[in-house]
């Protein structure tokens, strides 16, 4: 069963990555070219049909995979690059700084992510980047808390005490001992946050707080679809989102089980 999780995860996320990579060099049609064929049926050459403007759905889906990956990478990178150092710092016992950071993280955590997205979109224009940044910022506390908690566990180990006694600089302890030890957990968190970011972006797209229509994204395709007259044009990007989110979720779970079966089966 554990292997199955990993395999399904690999297939799901692999499909997304593959679609994104192929779309860099080839798509069946120009994804932003309008044609006279509105709501073309799901037949050759438009195998997934066309949308209201006559743009090829399959091509847009493939290019949309790029955006999907971009959202995940950007959001997780922001959250991890800011959250993890802060968490490790606090976890290693910087008292005053730690207290201030903890309170800052509290405020950030209490600020609804949606608000950040609305504000960023209103201030800088709604785009995939602003949506990803908002999701990333909102995810900082998750990484910060995770890193802090696991750092605390690591810090109580004997070899850390030994290093401290022998006068090893704090920064060296952080890089040599703490980070490598908490890395697997953070990796699992990253995979989970990756899929959550994809889902969050779809939600923001539905509210009009992400990519403009000219940029093919799955969330946007779903939002613009007419569910009642052309259900397939909604179902196709919907399924794509489910596959991607599930893929990365299961990938994270699978890798974690593979690395350390003792770890809890929860993110």
């Amino acid at each position: 069963m554990k292997k199955l999780t990993l395999v399904i995860g690999l297939i799901g996320s692999g499909l997304v990555v593959l679609a994104a990579l192929v779309s860099l060099v080839w798509t069946p049609f120009d994804p932003s070219k309008v044609s006279g064929i509105r709501y073309g049926s799901l037949t050759w050459p438009h195998i997934l049909g066309t949308d209201a403007l006559g743009m090829d759905t399959a091509s847009r889906l493939m290019v949309g995979a790029q955006t999907t990956l971009l959202v995940g990478i950007l959001a997780v990178a922001i959250a991890a690059l800011i959250g993890v150092p802060l968490g490790v710092f606090v976890g290693m016992g910087h008292k005053t700084l730690g207290e201030i950071l903890a309170r800052g993280s509290d405020i950030l955590y209490a600020l609804p992510a949606l608000l950040l997205a609305i504000l960023l979109a209103s201030a800088l224009g709604s785009s995939v980047t602003t949506a990803s940044i908002a999701i990333g910022i909102a995810t900082i506390p998750v990484f910060q808390r995770m890193a802090r908690a696991s750092t605390l566990t690591v810090m109580s180990q004997d070899y850390i005490l030994a290093a401290q006694v022998s006068g090893t600089p704090t920064s060296v302890i952080a890089l040599r001992h703490v980070l490598p030890n908490i890395a697997p957990l953070l990796g699992v968190q990253a995979a989970a946050s990756f899929s959550m970011a994809i889902l969050a972006e779809a939600g923001l797209a539905y509210l009009g707080l992400s990519a403009p229509k000219t940029v093919p994204t799955w969330g946007r395709m779903l939002r613009d679809a007419n569910f009642l007259t052309q259900p397939m044009q909604a179902v196709i990007p919907g399924i794509a989102i489910v596959i991607a989110v599930m893929g990365f979720n299961l990938l994270g779970d699978g890798v974690r089980d593979y690395l350390d079966p003792r770890l809890q089966e929860v993110r």
Binding site: S32, G125, G208, K213
Partner: peptide
């Protein structure tokens, strides 16, 4: 929809259109 359509047709005559949606 109109902006996407126009961007596509103007691209055909060699005009690059950058679409931005603002609240």
């Amino acid at each position: 929809g109109a902006a996407t359509f126009i961007a596509s047709q103007l691209a055909d005559v060699g005009i690059t259109v950058k679409v931005e949606e603002l609240d």
